Simulated assay, not measured.
Amino acid sequence: MAAFAQSAPCWVDVQLPDLEAGKRFYGELFGWTFRPDGDRRADALGDGKLVAALAAKKDGRMPTAWGVYFATDDIEASVSRVRAAGGQVITEPLPAGRHGVLAQAADPGGAVFGLWQAGDRAGFEKQNEPGSFCWTEVHTRSKDRVDPFYEEVFGFRCADVDDSPLDVPDTDEHRVDFRTWSPPGTEPGPETAVGGRSVITAAFPAELPSHFLSYFNVADCDDTARTVQRLGGRVTEPPLDIPYGRMAVLQDDQGAEFAVLQEPVS
């Protein structure tokens, strides 16, 4: 079982109204295959390796959304740090069979994330390859409260970077306020970053809440966006070039949002 660095993103899952429809959508989009994990969940596999999970929502009031989990070797201590730093614990530490122990929390801006203490499942068996997780970032309106929160809870080393699109004018209106997170004990910067924080600007609807956006690596961003539309999903941010490749923000056919990233050709 490969271990994950403390505080690194180690797992993603999506809560959906219709599990079977989700399997059809993501199976065709990313080439995933599935195996049952209980009555209401399915593990997603890419080339036979764990990449994510799909779950049927137990309550229609739950959001249809992708969730990300961060690795911890002491989930009780992590939950205590969440509270001390001004966050909210939504789900107290809860065993997930032999897989491990999970908890859910929200940062001071309201963005929800998970904590994962590994049992016999560390998390991803494949990442940073086409059809698998490659990045996550929190989008918030409360950076002055959120930035110190993630440093205190996860020990992240932070670096402010220019993440602005390459094909728009370099003006204050288009510039992105972006910060990367590197694990404890590393030198902060793009080479070590495992996630980040982006500020929601006035250009977005006022009702858009703080949230995590997780990315999947793809071989062709434009083709993936077209496939999402063909499968009944939506393109919420069309493909555009950023310093790290070509990305798009998409929704599946049930409304769960995610992003894709095509890495630049080296």
Rank of each mutant, 00 (worst) to 15 (best):
P188E: 05
T201W: 09
F154L: 04
G189H: 07
E187V: 10
S164Q: 01
E152R: 06
H211M: 14
H174R: 14
G195E: 01
V153R: 01
G185H: 12
H174F: 15
P190L: 10
A219I: 11
Y150F: 13
T201N: 12
T224L: 07
E187Q: 11
V153S: 02
R145C: 03
E187K: 09
F178S: 04
A203W: 07
A225S: 12
P205G: 08
E151W: 01
R157N: 07
E152D: 09
A203I: 10
V199N: 02
F156G: 00
P148G: 05
Y150N: 01
V194R: 00
G189L: 08
D162Q: 12
D144S: 12
S210C: 14
P183L: 15
C158T: 14
F154P: 00
T186C: 08
F149R: 00
F216A: 09
S210T: 12
P205F: 05
D144T: 10
C158Y: 01
S164M: 04
D220V: 13
S182N: 07
D170N: 13
H174I: 13
R179V: 11
C221P: 08
H211I: 08
L208P: 01
T227H: 08
P184H: 09
D177T: 06
L208K: 05
P165F: 13
L208S: 04
T192S: 06
G196K: 02
T186L: 09
V218A: 10
P148F: 05
D160C: 03
P169D: 15
F178I: 05
P165S: 14
D160L: 05
A203V: 09
D147A: 06
C158N: 09
F149W: 03
G155E: 04
R179F: 06
V194L: 03
S198A: 13
A203C: 07
F178T: 03
P188V: 03
T201L: 12
V176S: 13
V153A: 03
D167N: 12
D222S: 15
Y215G: 03
D220I: 13
D163E: 15
A203Y: 09
I200F: 04
R226Q: 13
H174T: 15
D167M: 09
V199C: 05
W181D: 00
D144Y: 06
T171K: 10
R179S: 07
A206Q: 10
S214E: 05
L213S: 12
G185P: 07
T180D: 02
R175S: 09
P190K: 07
D147E: 08
C158I: 11
D220Y: 12
D160R: 09
D220N: 14
S182W: 01
V146E: 01
E173V: 11
S164T: 10
A203D: 10
E173Q: 12
F212P: 00
E152N: 05
P183T: 12
R197P: 00
D167A: 12
Y150R: 02
T171M: 12
Y215F: 15
A219Y: 13
R145M: 04
H174V: 15
T227Y: 06
V218C: 10
P188M: 06
D222A: 15
P148V: 03
P165A: 15
S210A: 15
V194Y: 00
A202P: 06
A225K: 01
A225G: 06
S214M: 13
V176D: 07
S198C: 11
P190E: 09
D222K: 11
E151I: 03
A225M: 06
L166P: 02
P188A: 07
D223F: 04
